[in-house]
Amino acid sequence: MDRAELSGFLRDRRARLTPADVGLEPGGRRQTPGLRREEVALLAGISVDYYVRLEQGRGPHPSEQVLRALARALRLSEDEREYLLRLARAQGSPEPVRTVPENVLRLLERLDVPAMVLDARYEMVAWNRMLVALIGDPAEMPPRRRNRLRWLFDPDNPGANGELARQCVADLRASGRYPGDPGVLALVDELLAGRPAFAAMWAEREIEVRRTLTKRTVHPVAGELELDCEILAVPGGEHRVLLYTARPGSQRALRLLSTVDSY
């Protein structure tokens, strides 16, 4: 169990709520924002002492029933609730499977839209011809650019402080099914130490699994493109497939990509 992160997460989410958010009376002056510990314990149906120990990073391992009660008390989203449950199970997390399944590689070959596969560390580990036509050949990119998080927070990248970067940080926390993975931990430590924008976003503890996003770009051959990116988890592994499909008005431009070898 990741006691330190569990403790910080509970404190953070408690501070975001007001008594009015959960149907309680304000109850006089408050020295700090958010709910009191006593109020969270009341809403979750547990003792105040038990909850205090959880926030202090000590005490017994909470049961799933207790964690779900806390999720309801703190008005957590579905992604936040799953993250809370995963924190308590962190010690027993499985090791990630690094090899991209053969059926996923065959799928990439057959797709007529740009697609790539990312691992838990946001490394591009597989892609198809249409993606090469869209962004260039990842095999010829510097290794650091093939890691989408490193690239997003590169000082030379104008989007380093943008909404996409914020979404990816929230997704990294939320979808981190392998919290003990040395590669993921090393990447987070590297970005915390060297990228202030990443460190600021990481400290906000936003939790949201990215399932779709929108990409806008200008291609040297196809012209302006507005693409929807669907993010699909590969069952039984750490990988996710990203599929780019054209939004209304970009279908013809996307079809032009099929005539482009690379750029």
Rank of each mutant, 00 (worst) to 15 (best):
L85M: 10
V66E: 03
A69W: 02
S93C: 13
E64G: 04
A90Y: 07
Q65I: 06
E78V: 15
L87Q: 00
L87M: 12
E95F: 05
L67K: 00
H61L: 08
A71P: 00
E64F: 00
R72L: 15
L84W: 00
R58N: 06
R81C: 12
R75V: 07
P60E: 09
Y83F: 15
P94A: 12
L70N: 07
L87N: 04
A88V: 06
P62M: 08
P60V: 09
L87K: 00
Q65H: 09
S63K: 06
D79V: 08
E64L: 01
L67W: 01
R89E: 15
E64S: 03
E80C: 02
E82P: 05
L70P: 01
P96S: 09
R68E: 13
A69I: 03
R86V: 04
E78D: 15
D79E: 09
E95K: 12
D79L: 11
R58M: 09
R72S: 14
R75T: 07
R68W: 07
L74Q: 11
S63L: 04
E64W: 01
P62S: 09
L84A: 03
L70D: 08
E78L: 13
P60T: 11
L67M: 06
G59M: 03
Q91G: 14
E95S: 14
L84Q: 02
S93E: 15
L87H: 08
R75D: 02
E64T: 10
R75Y: 03
E95H: 09
Y83N: 06
Q91D: 15
G59Q: 06
D79M: 10
G57E: 08
R81N: 02
L70V: 07
Q91W: 05
E82G: 12
P62V: 02
R68Q: 15
A69Q: 05
Y83E: 03
S63E: 02
Q91L: 10
E64M: 00
E82F: 06
L84H: 01
A69C: 04
P96C: 10
L84I: 00
S93D: 15
